[in-house]
Amino acid sequence: MRRPRIAPWSAFWLLLAVLYFLIPMYATAEFSLQTGNGQYGFDAYREILNDPSFKSSFLLSLRLAVETVLVSLIIMVPTVYWVHLKLPRLRRVMDFIAILPFMVPPITLAIGLLRELHPLVTVRQLTWLLSSPQQLILPYVIIVMPFTYRSLDAGMRAIDLRILTEAAQSVGASWLTILFRVILPNLRSALLSAAFLTITVVMGEFTIASLNQFQTFSVYIQYIGAAKANPAAALSIISFTLTWGLMLSILIIGRQRGSQQQAQIGTTR
């Protein structure tokens, strides 16, 4: 059967959305390719790639992103597993805690932590943290927590944890074996999408890094943009491509299980 023709009204709104979404991207791409006097070329990209600060800031953000993924999964996976299995009454509490990072936006979290970290880190072995960008991981784990939690919660709800665990126990598996060889393989897509969204968020995080004066990728883009418009446009395109890649990966991973699109609220704005 042929579909009815598109109502002009629907076409209008969709077209408006397409224009609003795509014009800035097109403009940024073209802007990044301008070399002055109506000429086009990759000068802006070359300039960026030759800047040692680009490499160092990008790698710093990437490293923080990977470390945040690790720390947050190490904390969250056993916790969510344990709550599902042993303490189902705590689910309500966990759901509530997962909203809190939205109520305490990054800018407020940043100044709260700024105050706290100095008196907290009195242990001599930890004082390196005060000057190290690694301290950013502490709030980053909190920022991505709502998403990590919901992703793991949904993943664990979808499989029968109890039966898997009891079956593994009945053949004598230890808790570690259960977690690594039974539970985690079943949570692959939940873990991967949590990881990719975490990377997206950390690569784009500006507020906390800038207040603490660490030159992460976003802080570098801001620094470049304050002086040079074309390289800043090139960086925006690079950053956008990165977001595209990560979000598409989430989509492809989640395809097996009818996943929905993800967005973190109030994080990198």
Partner: peptide, 21 residues
């Protein structure tokens, strides 16, 4: 899909995309 990307594409790069626009 695009909304998923755009909702996460915010902050500094977004600001400069609009400067270019």
């Amino acid at each position: 899909t695009y909304s998923g990307v755009a909702a996460n594409f915010a902050g500094v790069p977004l600001a400069f995309a609009f400067v270019a626009t």
